[in-house]
């Protein structure tokens, strides 16, 4: 086989492929022009700033759907938890809306019990909160008390939960994925706004006396925080204060006055 033959053997298939590609390329580019769908420039810009994880957690089909809804004002920025806060601010700038609550969360354990909280009985069994809960409603005298078997720590993908003194604690490794929030069988791990300065470290809706009997760090629903708060951000609901983080200025007066110290300050 001469050099020329080899050259032809190589160049023919390449040439053919190139020709086919060219023909279809031309057809497609023509079709692309004909069938062009105008995409809003804003929409593309917003899309590039979104996380582009296409997780669908916002309820729209992918990030492009969410970007479209954002531009049309149908969706809110905080529906997306994957986009970083600074990007959300940029998007808010583009759309001319208030970034407001960017949806960034902070995870807290709304129970100060642990060893302070009395046990109802000694639980001997598989160390699992959900299973302990099946056994006569859990071993803690308080039905909203952390049992400390660490189901949250087991699901945490970043080892951000330590069990100290029979109680879960979130450390700085937390990525705010909220797996623990979903896992906790008694729902005492809560996601609160990132910029929150205080949180209620108790989840018990029982009356003061009942709480006092079992736990020294529980909320006794005295209402001191409600009266103290200078900005009226706290209301008492079902024997537990609820903080309106939109109104909270972070002065910390409630935490200072709380007799059982069940309102904790965050840094």
């Amino acid at each position: 086989m001469s050099g020329m033959d080899i050259f032809i053997t190589i160049i023919t298939p390449l040439g053919i492929l190139f020709a086919i590609a060219l023909v279809f390329g031309v057809i497609l580019s023509y079709a692309g022009k004909k069938l062009e769908v105008k995409v809003d420039e804003k929409e593309e810009e917003v899309l590039s700033l979104l996380a582009n994880a296409n997780c669908g957690a916002c309820g729209y089909p992918g990030c492009s759907g969410f970007a479209k809804a954002l531009c049309e004002g149908k969706a809110e920025l905080n529906m997306c938890s994957a986009t970083p806060g600074e990007n959300k601010k940029k998007i808010a700038g583009i759309l001319g809306i208030d970034a407001g609550d960017t949806g960034e969360k902070r995870i807290v354990v709304a129970c100060g019990g642990g060893l302070i909280c009395k046990d109802k009985f000694e639980y001997i069994g598989y160390e699992d909160c959900a299973m302990a809960l099946q056994t006569a409603g859990g071993n803690k005298a308080c039905s909203n008390g952390c049992m400390g078997f660490g189901n949250c720590a087991k699901v945490c993908p970043s080892q951000a939960i330590d069990i100290k003194d029979n109680r879960a604690e979130i450390n700085s490794n937390c990525t705010k994925c909220q797996s623990c929030v979903k896992t906790c069988p008694i729902h005492i791990i809560k996601a609160i706004p990132e910029n929150a300065k205080v949180y209620i470290k108790c989840s018990s809706h029982k009356k003061g006396k009942e709480v006092m009997d079992v736990c020294k760090s529980g909320c006794i629903a005295c209402g001191m925080c409600v009266r103290t708060c200078p900005s009226g951000a706290i209301v008492m609901e079902d024997n537990l204060p609820v903080i309106n983080y939109d109104k909270c200025t972070g002065c910390g007066a409630c935490a200072d006055k709380c007799p059982t110290k069940c309102i904790a300050k965050l840094d």
Binding site: T12, I16, I20, I27, L35, E36, V37
Partner: peptide, 28 residues
């Protein structure tokens, strides 16, 4: 041209083009 061996790659090229076309039509 006796180059049937490039059939797979050539066919994929054609299929991809049609898929692109379908995508454009649906988008519109």
């Amino acid at each position: 041209l006796n180059i049937q061996y490039i059939q797979t790659i050539a066919f994929i090229l054609i299929i991809a083009s049609f898929v692109q076309l379908v995508e454009m039509v649906l988008k519109k």
